[in-house]
């Protein structure tokens, strides 16, 4: 029974649009799903290589802008010499280019910023995100600056017999997000489970030791940065084509903070952590909205964040896993089958 737990969750997620009739609730799930993808990508860097990037939103934003511009088209003059004109392409091309460009930026930034560690790494990544925001704000010819890129087209899918269908429908969009999220999950799981992943964890645990046994630290860090940035870029592209408008505030620092809260709360360095954290912070507002104004909601998040650091520094997933382990070590009749299946499903880390 317990080995079917992941399938159980998959079935739940797959059937959501069938039993959930409230379109607005579906909208919450889509946005939450997009942010879970971003949080998973941040977790690869923060949880598995131990590098805290405060500029992760930059890759999300680069993906969003690259994807929007690919599908909307642009006409810019570079340095007053070269004129680049781009005709609109389908949104799917935007997703691919957005993902690739974000990954490439991840490579460049990785190359540059892994020269420094700790506090300096944190600040250099933060600065990078702010610079990208200011470029998006000021390079008006390309990005429309504060006027925002409007009318970003939705994704289209070719269906047999129906031709190309635009994903205006929320249920279809939900499946697209779910599909990308599952792909991202599998990619991260395989990467972490491989030799590369063990090398990453080794250098997180003890960098100098990892160097001494011949692990090429920078190479693995950069590989992590590229995959992480590309996934964030894919999430950004999904976001842009869903909300259909993109402005420079997409680079806002608070989005990075949101992702960090999701990862830390769920449990950094665990595969399920960002999903659990993402769902909590996607639905925590549900619980507080009815009695709290936006300011108070934010204050609750702030308090939540501090409490997590003090009480559950490892995050929820590892804590729950440990708690269940302690039950499992007792005689078997103490543990119901349901709990056992939960234990296995949470043991993905």
């Amino acid at each position: 029974m317990s080995r079917y737990a992941p399938i159980f969750w998959l079935v739940i997620f797959l059937t959501v649009p069938l039993w959930l009739k409230d379109q607005y609730f579906l909208h919450v799930l889509i946005i939450t799903g997009i942010f879970i993808i971003a949080a998973m990508s941040l977790n690869l860097l923060l949880g598995f290589t131990g590098q805290l990037s405060l500029g992760h939103i930059a890759f999300f934003g680069i993906g969003a802008y690259a994807s929007s511009l690919t599908s909307v088209g642009f006409d810019v003059e570079l340095f007053g010499v070269v004129r680049v004109v781009h005709k609109p392409w389908p949104a799917v091309a935007g997703l691919i280019i957005g993902t690739a460009l974000a990954g490439f930026c991840g490579f460049l930034i990785g190359k540059l910023s892994f020269k420094v560690r700790g506090a300096y790494f944190i600040i250099v990544t933060l600065s990078f995100a702010e610079v990208t925001r200011l470029v998006a704000l000021n390079w008006v010819e390309l990005t429309q600056g504060p006027m925002a890129i409007n009318n970003v087209p939705p994704f289209t899918v070719g269906l047999p017999g129906l031709g190309y269908v635009a994903l205006w429908n929320k249920a279809y969009y939900y499946y697209l997000v779910l599909f990308i999220a599952i792909l991202a999950y599998i990619l991260i799981a395989r990467l972490v489970g491989s030799r590369i992943g063990r090398a990453m964890v080794a250098l997180k645990e003890n960098e100098s030791l990892a160097v001494s046994i011949g692990i090429d630290v920078t190479r693995y860090l950069i590989l992590g940065a590229v995959v992480s940035a590309a996934l964030a870029g894919a999430a950004g592209s999904l976001y842009a084509h869903y909300v259909k408008i993109i402005d420079p505030d997409v680079f806002h620092f608070m989005y990075t903070v949101t992702m960090i809260i999701m990862v830390i709360t769920g449990g950094k360095g665990t595969l399920a952590g960002p999903i659990v954290g993402g769902l909590i912070f996607g639905f925590l507002p549900v619980a507080v909205r009815s009695f709290a104004s936006p300011e108070v909601q934010w204050m609750i998040y702030g308090v939540f964040m501090i409490i997590i650091v003090f009480v559950l520094p490892q995050g929820i997933v590892p804590a729950v896993t440990q708690w269940i382990e302690s039950f499992r070590s007792r005689p078997p009749n103490d543990t119901g089958p349901a709990l056992a299946s939960l234990a296995t499903s949470r043991k993905e880390d």
Binding site: L52, I122, V257, I260, W298, M299, Y301, M305, I306, V309
Partner: peptide, 11 residues
């Protein structure tokens, strides 16, 4: 400690 100061900043 940084996460705690970010939490305090939000509050």
């Amino acid at each position: 400690t940084m996460l705690v100061t970010i939490g305090a900043w939000i509050i």
